[in-house]
Design a protein around this nucleic acid. Structure first.
Lengths: 193, 193
DNA sequence: AAAAACCGTTGATAATAATCAACGGTTTTT
DNA sequence: AAAAACCGTTGATTATTATCAACGGTTTTT
């Protein structure tokens, strides 16, 4: 269960965790299991916990009055599932986070996570690197979104995140890309030819 | 010159800088002055310095073969001008950063900045808070971009960043929003009625 | 086992925004 | 002071994408 998280940290920071640090981490996180379609976070609630995904798939989304929904983020193994604004500022979340497969998580509050970072240098280092990569990936997604057609956006998505393609339905991927499911379907079928 | 930066740090962290810390900061940063249309960073170069904008306005942009250009970020006073990917990974930048007004900057390398953070707790704290806010703002920009029409995006932009409206030409703002200058012009003139 | 909900696809039509072109009014350069 | 470049606007046309509706084939629920 915890091995994935240990691997993740060492892979990010290029340094080993001591047995003592591993114990600290084990004590700080709480395992949680969700079934498909269960919510980790409900719109309007405060997102007190972030969750490291050991196994499974989740999405961040919101719903409007007329039955519509928008998917804004997708998560699989080795992702952290949280709504950054709510988790950071402890404000009510505008989004929900839903398990899309049966999912195993390791959860922790922001306060405990920050405290852990003061005790374990690797965790502090991991935070910095995660923020860097997150900012870089988001900037790229933004550039594609404001500068490219639906077709190019899907092309790039398929090349950059092949691990998402067969784990989420197309209408969620379409929404994530900012297009309708019909347009995505046409884009996919045209690019076969 | 440095007072704006000191104010910025104390405003972010809610804690004062000691005289010693202020001296450390003064020694770590190098002032730089740019005239309008001068480049702080050229596409293809490595972005070795980030710059705190004391006074002025800048934009991050790229140019294509056929004379076109795309503006992906706008900066004014109290912003940090850098291209995160190139600055972090020291890879050649896909973007340029150009002064759009005569601009005064305080510049520093990533290495020196990180080292400063180890000596001055307020700087480390500032990094964390900056990353949080940056991630939150970018997520919002992304949600608007994939979920809203040109009109809504401009509305939100005008409400959220009034300080940009009269300092950058409309065609750059249009590009930043992912629409053409003609569409922005029409959106603006329709919403008057 | 039957019913219901979900999913991806296709077609027809409508809305949105891009493109191309031209214009006067700036500002900048020479 | 004249020429050139830049800027925002408007009109006409085209391209892209959304919307609405319907369909068969799944999967899930009852």
């Amino acid at each position: 269960m915890y091995q994935n998280l240990f691997n993740y940290i060492t892979r990010y920071t290029n340094s080993q965790l001591t047995p003592l640090e591993q114990d600290l981490i084990k004590n700080a996180f709480t395992p949680k299991r969700l079934r498909k379609k269960q919510f980790f976070l409900q719109e309007g609630d405060v997102n007190r916990y972030t969750g490291f995904i050991v196994k499974g798939a989740m999405r961040q989304c919101c719903f409007d009055a007329k039955g519509g929904e928008q998917t804004v983020n997708l998560f699989v193994e080795d992702y952290w599932a949280d709504e950054r604004e709510s988790f950071t500022l402890l404000t009510p979340s505008k989004y929900s986070i839903e398990a899309w497969e049966d999912t195993d998580l390791l959860t922790i509050t922001r306060k405990d996570f920050l405290e852990l970072a003061t005790r374990i240098p690797s965790i502090a280092e991991m935070f910095r690197i995660m923020d860097d990569r997150h900012a870089i990936a988001n900037q790229k997604r933004l550039s594609l979104s404001i500068g490219c057609t639906a077709e190019k956006r899907y092309e790039d998505f398929a090349a950059s995140y092949p691990q998402f393609i067969n784990r989420f339905p197309q209408h969620q991927i379409a929404s994530y890309l900012g297009i309708t499911k019909e347009t995505l379907s046409r884009v996919r079928n045209q690019s076969i030819r």
